[in-house]
Design a binder for these strands. Structure first.
Lengths: 138, 138
DNA sequence: TGTAATTGCTCTAGCCACTAGAGCTTCAAG
DNA sequence: CTTGAAGCTCTAGTGGCTAGAGCAATTACA
């Protein structure tokens, strides 16, 4: 049996976050010691590792809830799980594309300042005047 | 003079968000009509456009506050503004790198599922077993 | 066995940047 | 002069935690 601190160290999920997941119903309420402290089994450790892994990959808590539900029904077709993963992939790709555009814009802004005072600072001017932008970000 | 709706349409910032910015002190409280409705000048339109632009570029509200303060002191050296922009660039680059790693991992997970049921679905297995990961994401 | 440090407990409130909704008033077009 | 859109204030909710107060339990060591 693991204490909540053990679980935290083994999964990398912070202690208050574990309690938060319990409150949200992502992990079940575990057994308690005589003194009312949480005691986890290996199964619960694995579920938390699953959650951690999915969070690392950017899945929303609601998606993780679905994935956990699915993993409890191994006989069902896995189209739903695939769809969740594909949507997450699309969303990550969108974010990358968006951030790449920002990066380009910021590079132009942040590396081109020859001004010495705010009055002719390219950073400030670029932010004030959208027309200086080459690209339609946002 | 512009109504809050005019401002919203011209800058792309939603009406409740404009009021929120006012509450946060990012934009000053504007004049009011006889019937207590907000009436904005062109200057205020420009400030909001500045904010919108900076938010699009991912600057935090606190950074924007600094940039606005700076733009009100055009005689000062612009090193501070440059630093804010450079830090933002670094943070965007970090995010891109992180998301690229996630993208690679998700591609592997989402495109390799040959299973027909959840029981042998690669998505679920990959999330359950970190050892299937090639890369240390997270 | 004593005790001190660490870890755990519950509860409430805060973070960021909005967003939603209730219930009301004002404005602008026809 | 009416009607419907747009405005107002206020409170509360979102996601995914995080922080802190004020206790209780556990554990390591003497």
């Amino acid at each position: 049996m693991f204490s909540i601190g053990d679980l935290s160290r083994r999964t990398g999920v912070k202690v208050p976050t574990i309690r938060y997941y319990e409150q949200m119903g992502l992990v079940a309420a575990p057994e308690r010691s005589e003194g009312n402290q949480r005691r986890y089994s290996r199964q619960e450790l694995e579920r938390l590792a699953f959650i951690r892994h999915a969070r690392d990959l950017g899945f929303a808590v609601e998606d993780i809830r679905s994935l956990i539900d699915l993993s409890g029904h191994p006989e069902q077709p896995c189209g739903h799980a695939d769809r969740i993963a594909e949507e997450q992939l699309i969303s990550v790709r969108d974010k990358v594309a968006q951030l790449k555009r920002l990066e380009a814009e910021l590079e132009r802004i942040a590396t081109c300042c020859n001004g010495e005072t705010v009055g002719d600072c390219y950073v400030i001017r670029a932010l004030s005047d959208h027309a200086l932008c080459t690209d339609e970000h946002g």
